[in-house]
Write a protein that binds this DNA or RNA. Sequence first.
DNA 1: GACTGATTCAAACGATTGATTAATTCTTGT
DNA 2: ACAAGAATTAATCAATCGTTTGAATCAGTC
Lengths: 229, 229
Amino acid sequence: MNAQPTDASLDTRQRLIEAAILTFAEKGFDGAGIREIALRAKANSALVTYHFSGKEGLYLECLRYIFTRKACRVAELAAAPSPEGPGAREAALQQLRNHIRAFTQDLMACDPSDPQDPLGEAAMALMAREMQAPRAISSALLMEQIRPHVDHLMGCLQVLRPDLSRDELLNMGMSIQGQLLYFRNSLGIARLIRSNPAYPEDLEVVIRHFTDFSLRGLGIPEAFPQPRN
Amino acid sequence: MNAQPTDASLDTRQRLIEAAILTFAEKGFDGAGIREIALRAKANSALVTYHFSGKEGLYLECLRYIFTRKACRVAELAAAPSPEGPGAREAALQQLRNHIRAFTQDLMACDPSDPQDPLGEAAMALMAREMQAPRAISSALLMEQIRPHVDHLMGCLQVLRPDLSRDELLNMGMSIQGQLLYFRNSLGIARLIRSNPAYPEDLEVVIRHFTDFSLRGLGIPEAFPQPRN
DNA sequence: GACTGATTCAAACGATTGATTAATTCTTGT
DNA sequence: ACAAGAATTAATCAATCGTTTGAATCAGTC
């Protein structure tokens, strides 16, 4: 076991985690082998057991790594206070717009300064896999990380549609998030359908669509002072 | 090899396919073993190679089985002619409503007469897995099956919003389908978030929400002669 | 009843899996 | 310089993987 990790081991740990994220994202938990991961990280496969006490430990560490160092934009937004008092409605509307934009950008590439970053892409693909078929061992970790985002979104929706019940609000949130996550999870098929491997060429166009569609679907007429055509 | 299958072998083939759908849906392609599948089907594991020439062949046969015998409702709708001429708008609106209802019902349980049918549930879970992370070997089969549904939906949307470009219409379709598929793919998390393992108790409530949200998001004011509260 | 081909079976194949061992190298504090 | 412990390595473990083999069983035909 490792009592107090040194600088040297931290490098190896990180290399293993990043290689594991890439490999897990490509092939899934069962499809990825620790030898392949270790080879990618230029490390010995025995170090997986040494550092993470097994393949499952490495997998959990990958999820933690993604949660703590990625998806920062949405996390920041979720920390914002729920809108209250006078002007709460306008504030909630703006927060919802920000949420859609931040979530979409996080989904496409976690690191905005390096849009080619393969790690960010892989991290979101891995998250998507995990959300669809969560392993028993990781569902607790998943819920713990998702909860604040849900609460934040629900807070905004409640201000915008105070007439709706909690269940109806959850349905609204589900529809909004569903568009965004499906957009991310079905990029492969979407590109096939459109016969355009470069889709989406401009993320801003997609964000604007999501925002308009969501606000209309939410039933907020004042968000559209003048219909644009 | 099997030249002309007899009645006896058809039973075994079907048992293997259905057991494979269940197991593949639970554990994924790599996680499921042919011994486990064969045990479930009360058959010998060597029959996988004999009947389907390997594990991959069995997997493809599962997808074909699902496509041909399940999701009938949406397939029927997709065969309906695109609305034209006078009254096309009302027809397209009704077809869109039917599409949302049929798709949601298909997603939840393929066999309406037996809502407890575990095979229908597993089949959709397997499809969801495949759409998110399509195997190279099956993406062609997937596109071939999805294409008519996409075309049908796009035909309706084009009638309802003739002012939009093809890309904008595709975005609309993506948002509508996204809600539905995300609803299906994230049922596990949704139940955790709502602390309600029985969600959704009434599918009709969800269908109505999807319909209302989609029609509003699509920007069809006449679909709501009177806002309900 | 003997023949034929499809189907099923138990057993074993080589390959690969995640995990473990023991020896070695590297790092650090004294 | 030296001991102590962390980090890494090659080699190996038992288990399981998908597949193959060859014989046994079944259903028809003559």
